[in-house]
C-alpha cells in the first residue's frame, strides 16, 4: 500500500484545519473554555495543549470504533452517544494516569482535562471526520490540526486579553462583551486564510 498520497492529504487537511477551517473561529465550537480560560497566556497554553492531545487521540479512537464496530453492525446513527461516552472515558483515564505517574504533566495539563471532556469542539471534530469520510491517517492529521488551530486561537485571544487588562473599556462592553467582539474580529482575520489552500 502506498501511503504517500495519504500522508500528503493528511498534511493538507491538517494545515487547512489550523487556518481556513479553524474549528473555533470558522465553526465556533469549543467557545466556552475559549472565553472562560483565556485571561492569561500561561493557563491558555495549558488548556490549548490539553485540547491538542485530546482532540488527536479521541479522533483516532473514535475512527476505529466507528469503522470497526458501528459500520460493521450498521449502527452509524449511534455515533453521537458512543463518541461522547468514549471521549469522557478516555479523558477520565488519562487524567487518572497523569495524576498517578506524572505530577509534572498533571500540573500542566491534567487540571484542564475535566474542563474539556464535554467540549463540543472535541465531539465536533469526531463527527466532522465521519461526515467528510476521512481515512485513518487523514483523521490523525485532521485531529491534530484542529487542536493546533484551537490552541493558536486561544493563545492569540489570551495575548490580546492580557494587553486589554489595563485598558479602559466602556463599561457596557467589559468582560464577555469585548471578548466576543475580539473573537468575531479574529474570525474575520482567519477568513483571510481561505483561498490559501483549496484542500478540505
Amino acid at each position: 500500500m502506498n501511503l504517500g498520497p495519504e500522508i500528503s492529504q493528511a498534511f493538507i487537511v491538517c494545515i487547512s484545519a489550523v487556518f481556513t477551517q479553524n474549528i473555533l473561529l470558522a465553526y465556533f465550537l469549543g467557545l466556552c473554555p475559549f472565553l472562560g480560560v483565556s485571561r492569561e497566556v500561561k493557563t491558555a497554553t495549558g488548556l490549548g495543549l490539553a485540547v491538542i492531545f485530546v482532540l488527536t487521540s479521541t479522533c483516532m479512537l473514535n475512527w476505529l470504533v466507528y469503522h470497526y464496530i458501528l459500520v460493521l453492525l450498521g449502527l452509524e446513527f449511534f455515533r453521537f452517544i458512543l463518541f461522547i461516552i468514549i471521549i469522557a472515558a478516555f479523558v477520565q483515564l488519562v487524567e487518572m494516569v497523569l495524576d498517578r505517574y506524572s505530577p509534572f504533566l498533571y500540573q500542566k495539563l491534567g487540571v484542564f482535562l475535566p474542563l474539556i471532556t464535554v467540549n463540543c469542539a472535541i465531539l465536533g471534530a469526531s463527527l466532522f471526520m465521519v461526515i467528510r469520510d476521512y481515512s485513518f491517517i487523514v483523521t490523525i492529521g485532521y485531529g491534530f490540526g484542529s487542536g493546533l488551530g484551537w490552541f493558536l486561537a486561544i493563545m492569540a485571544m489570551a495575548g490580546i486579553r492580557q494587553k486589554l487588562a489595563n485598558d479602559r473599556i466602556p463599561q457596557g462592553l467589559q468582560g464577555p462583551g469585548i471578548t466576543l467582539i475580539i473573537a468575531g474580529l479574529m474570525a474575520l482575520a482567519f477568513m483571510g486564510f481561505s483561498g490559501v489552500l483549496q484542500g478540505r
Binding site: 449511534f78 452517544i81 458512543l82 472515558a89
Partner: peptide, 19 residues
Amino acid sequence: AVAVVSSIGTVLAGLLCIC
C-alpha cells in the same frame, strides 16, 4: 443496537473502575 451500546458502555465503565 441496545446490546452494543450498553456493552461498550459497560466495558468502558469496568475499565475505569479497574483503573
